[in-house]
Amino acid sequence: MAKHMVARSVVVDAPAKRIFDLVAAPSRHPELDGSGTVQSALFGPERLEADSEFGMDMKMLGLPYRMTNRVVEFEEGRLIAWKHVGSHRWRYEFEELPQGGTLVTETFDYSRGQVGFYILSGAPARNARGIERTLERLKELAEAEEAAQA
């Protein structure tokens, strides 16, 4: 893995499109978030696309704050990433597998900006745990929605 990135993956028994649609809907982010920081969607489109901006109510260490994000990477059904003022990125990649299901990889890329601050604050380890829980939630939601459509 590249230096100053944290990534985890999970195989989800659902098509990439269904999973991508969950991640591309900012209103669903509080349901997906495994870190406990994303509280609610403030503004933005119903569905993200290239250069979309969206705002979220956040909370960390008991302190509420607001974050504006901008989509900086976008390939329909395959890749979506956004950044905020801190310049690090949250990226989701979706790869349909030949045997069925989709490999979903979430990456926290903190290689831009205040690398030392992120390391000293313990953010890489904290974000790794949050990513793991987020991917568990994403898997549960996508598979439940897929089963409901069957």
Rank of each mutant, 00 (worst) to 15 (best):
P15D: 15
E31H: 05
M5G: 06
V12W: 07
Y92C: 02
L63E: 13
R47D: 05
V71Y: 04
A50S: 09
M1E: 04
L48D: 02
R126F: 15
E140F: 09
R112V: 13
V85L: 07
D33G: 13
D21T: 00
S35A: 12
N127M: 11
A24E: 00
P98S: 08
Y110L: 12
A25V: 00
R70P: 00
K17Q: 12
S40E: 14
F20H: 03
P15S: 11
G62H: 06
A14V: 12
E93T: 10
K139D: 04
Y118T: 06
R91K: 10
V71S: 02
E96T: 08
R70D: 00
G34P: 04
S121D: 10
R70T: 11
L42W: 12
G44N: 02
R126S: 14
E140A: 15
K83L: 06
P98D: 05
L120K: 15
S121E: 09
E73I: 04
D109C: 08
G55I: 11
V71N: 02
L63F: 13
V104I: 04
G113D: 10
F108C: 05
L97G: 04
E136L: 12
H4F: 13
E73L: 10
V115D: 15
A125H: 06
R133V: 09
G122D: 01
L48E: 01
E49H: 09
E93N: 02
Y118V: 06
T102K: 01
